Lab assay of single mutants.
Amino acid sequence: MLDDRARMEAAKKEKVEQILAEFQLQEEDLKKVMRRMQKEMDRGLRLETHEEASVKMLPTYVRSTPEGSEVGDFLSLDLGGTNFRVMLVKVGEGEEGQWSVKTKHQMYSIPEDAMTGTAEMLFDYISECISDFLDKHQMKHKKLPLGFTFSFPVRHEDIDKGILLNWTKGFKASGAEGNNVVGLLRDAIKRRGDFEMDVVAMVNDTVATMISCYYEDHQCEVGMIVGTGCNACYMEEMQNVELVEGDEGRMCVNTEWGAFGDSGELDEFLLEYDRLVDESSANPGQQLYEKLIGGKYMGELVRLVLLRLVDENLLFHGEASEQLRTRGAFETRFVSQVESDTGDRKQIYNILSTLGLRPSTTDCDIVRRACESVSTRAAHMCSAGLAGVINRMRESRSEDVMRITVGVDGSVYKLHPSFKERFHASVRRLTPSCEITFIESEEGSGRGAALVSAVACKKACMLGQ
Rank of each mutant, 00 (worst) to 15 (best):
T82C: 12
G227E: 08
R250Q: 09
K172Q: 15
C213G: 06
A449K: 04
L144T: 04
G229N: 09
Y214W: 13
T405F: 06
E442M: 04
T332I: 11
F152V: 14
T376Q: 07
M34T: 15
W99K: 12
V305D: 00
E443Q: 12
Q239A: 08
A320S: 13
V367Y: 02
E290N: 07
F316A: 06
D262L: 13
E27H: 14
E27W: 04
T49Q: 05
G178Y: 10
M402R: 07
H317V: 09
H50C: 08
V408S: 09
D344T: 07
K459P: 02
D247L: 08
E331V: 13
E221N: 12
E93I: 10
A6V: 13
E312L: 12
C230G: 04
M238C: 05
K420A: 14
R377H: 00
Y108P: 00
E312H: 15
A176C: 11
K420V: 07
E268Q: 12
G407H: 08
D187N: 08
D42E: 09
Q465T: 05
V89R: 01
L386G: 01
K459E: 06
R397F: 06
Y297C: 09
L315T: 02
C213L: 07
G264K: 15
R43I: 06
H105R: 13
S64M: 11
E443S: 01
K12V: 14
I293Q: 05
L306S: 06
Q138P: 06
Q18Y: 04
V427R: 00
T168R: 12
E27L: 12
P153G: 08
A449W: 13
Y349V: 13
G328E: 08
P284S: 09
M57V: 02
W99M: 09
A370Y: 00
K172N: 14
L75I: 03
D278E: 03
L430T: 00
E96K: 15
H416M: 05
M235P: 01
E67Q: 14
S360D: 09
E52D: 03
L45A: 02
M121F: 09
E440W: 04
T342D: 12
I348V: 10
M251S: 02
W99C: 06
W167L: 12
G80M: 08
E177G: 07
E128N: 01
N83G: 12
L415N: 11
C213M: 11
E70G: 12
G343A: 14
C129Q: 01
E28S: 12
F171E: 11
L301A: 07
A201C: 07
G193M: 06
F133M: 11
T361D: 15
C230W: 06
V408E: 08
H156W: 13
L357W: 10
M202Q: 08
S54G: 10
L430R: 00
L355W: 03
K458T: 09
F133Q: 02
V389E: 00
P111T: 15
T332G: 15
S441G: 05
G385P: 02
N240T: 06
E14D: 13
L324E: 00
A460C: 14
D4C: 06
R192L: 08
G97W: 04
Q239V: 10
G249P: 00
V199L: 11
R333C: 08
G147T: 10
A119K: 11
S360K: 09
D311I: 02
T103S: 07
T362D: 12
L271A: 05
K142W: 08
C252K: 02
L25V: 07
R403W: 02
K172V: 08
G246V: 03
L266T: 01
F316Q: 05
A449E: 07
C220L: 01
Q465F: 06
T65S: 15
L288P: 08
V374H: 02
R369S: 11
R345I: 07
R447S: 13
A119E: 12
D205S: 06
M381H: 03
A460M: 12
G258S: 02
M235Q: 00
T168S: 11
A232I: 08
L266W: 03
Y214V: 07
R358L: 03
E421C: 09
V401F: 10
N240G: 07
N254Y: 08
G318P: 15
R422L: 14
V89K: 02
P111C: 05
R447H: 14
L77F: 07
M402S: 13
Q24T: 07
K458V: 04
E120N: 05
T118H: 05
K143R: 08
E196Y: 08
E399H: 11
F316M: 09
D311Q: 06
G249E: 01
V452N: 03
L75N: 01
K169M: 10
L58D: 13
A232M: 11
S375D: 07
I351F: 04
C233N: 00
E51D: 04
Y125D: 02
T116Y: 11
H424C: 09
E265S: 15
D198L: 03
E435R: 09
G385R: 03
L304G: 11
V310C: 04
N350Y: 02
G81S: 15
I19Q: 02
A173P: 07
H380A: 15
V89D: 02
L314N: 02
L164Q: 15
D3R: 03
E112R: 07
R5G: 13
I189K: 05
N240Q: 05
S411P: 13
R186H: 11
G444Q: 13
L88N: 14
A378Y: 00
C233T: 04
K15D: 09
E395K: 15
E268H: 09
T60W: 02
G385Y: 02
A119C: 13
L357E: 09
I390R: 00
E51L: 08
S281Y: 01
L288S: 15
G410E: 02
R369Y: 06
Y214P: 07
P432C: 05
E67N: 09
K414I: 07
A232L: 13
V452P: 02
L184S: 08
D29I: 00
G80A: 11
T82D: 11
F148R: 04
S100F: 06
M462C: 12
E443L: 08
C213T: 05
D409N: 14
A173K: 12
D217F: 03
R36A: 11
T342P: 07
M381G: 02
Q239W: 11
L30F: 00
E9W: 02
V374Y: 01
L324H: 00
M41G: 01
R325V: 09
M197H: 12
I110G: 01
K102C: 07
E443Y: 04
S100C: 14
L430W: 03
S131L: 10
R308M: 01
T168L: 10
F334A: 10
G162A: 09
R392H: 13
I19Y: 02
M57G: 00
L276W: 15
